[in-house]
């Protein structure tokens, strides 16, 4: 399994949000770090096919980012996760499952399973409008995991989670990363430090660091030094 990002750029007028990034990601967990405005969210949107690159190409095992097959392998949690306030948590997941092409029985089974996994088993029948910020974020994580995605892209997934929930989240992602590609961005360096196999650092739209993180110096200090 291989995600190929080949000289991908995104330009808005004279501003270059993503500047000729080339990456080859294989199974594992990739932590994306960068200051606000570095281009992390833009890069993730490009990888999800919801933003068209100005130049370059993105493919997963030869499937182009613009294809239905590519999206079929994708799980995405956006930074600003939107939901339907009048849907229950269960309805929301069933709707997302339908969008991802799961059949009715499978959708029902997977939705119940994922609600339990993110600790929302008892809240499934409640309307999303009644959820706390952390609960909504967990629901967002659950929808991203629907359909067994081989490519999981999580933009600020730990925002709004309390320390206990963050630990649970790390465990879920660590399991997922063993067989799939997980790319997550966060401001919380410790989250990445704990679970990412590879660190990616962005600054002004460019990838300034790319490499594994094992037994090196303190990541926070390393990050601050480069920002």
């Amino acid at each position: 399994m291989e995600l190929m990002i080949d000289r991908v750029s995104k330009q808005y007028g004279s501003k270059i949000a993503v500047d000729r990034i080339s990456l080859k990601l294989q199974r594992g967990i990739y932590g994306l770090l960068g200051a606000n405005g570095a281009g992390k969210t833009t890069l993730m949107r490009l990888l999800c096919g919801i933003l068209k690159p100005t130049s370059g190409s993105i493919s997963l095992d030869g499937m182009d980012v613009a294809t239905e097959e590519y999206r079929g392998e994708l799980g995405y949690l956006p930074q600003d996760f939107g939901y339907y306030p009048d849907f229950t948590g269960e309805e929301f997941l069933l709707y997302m499952a339908a969008l991802k092409g799961l059949n009715k029985a499978e959708a029902k089974r997977k939705s119940a399973e994922l609600l339990e996994l993110v600790g929302l088993g008892e809240m499934g029948k409640k309307k999303v409008r009644t959820y706390s910020g952390g609960m909504k974020q967990r629901l967002g994580i659950a929808q991203a995991l629907l359909g067994e995605p081989r490519l999981l892209i999580l933009d600020e997934p730990t925002a709004g989670l309390d320390p206990k929930e963050r630990v649970r989240f790390r465990e879920v992602i660590a399991r997922w990363g063993k067989e799939n590609i997980v790319l997550l961005s966060t401001h919380i360096v410790s989250d990445i430090e704990h679970i990412a196999d590879t660190i990616l650092m962005m600054k002004d739209g460019q990838m300034i660091h790319q490499g594994p993180w094992e037994n090196q110096e303190d990541l926070e200090a390393f990050y601050l030094e480069r920002m």
Partner: peptide
């Protein structure tokens, strides 16, 4: 409302989010 609620990102990045949706 999908754009206002920002659910458009979830829809458009899903398998059936463009044609069937």
């Amino acid at each position: 409302e999908e754009h206002v609620r920002r659910t458009d990102q979830l829809i458009l990045s899903s398998r059936h989010g463009r044609q069937k949706a």
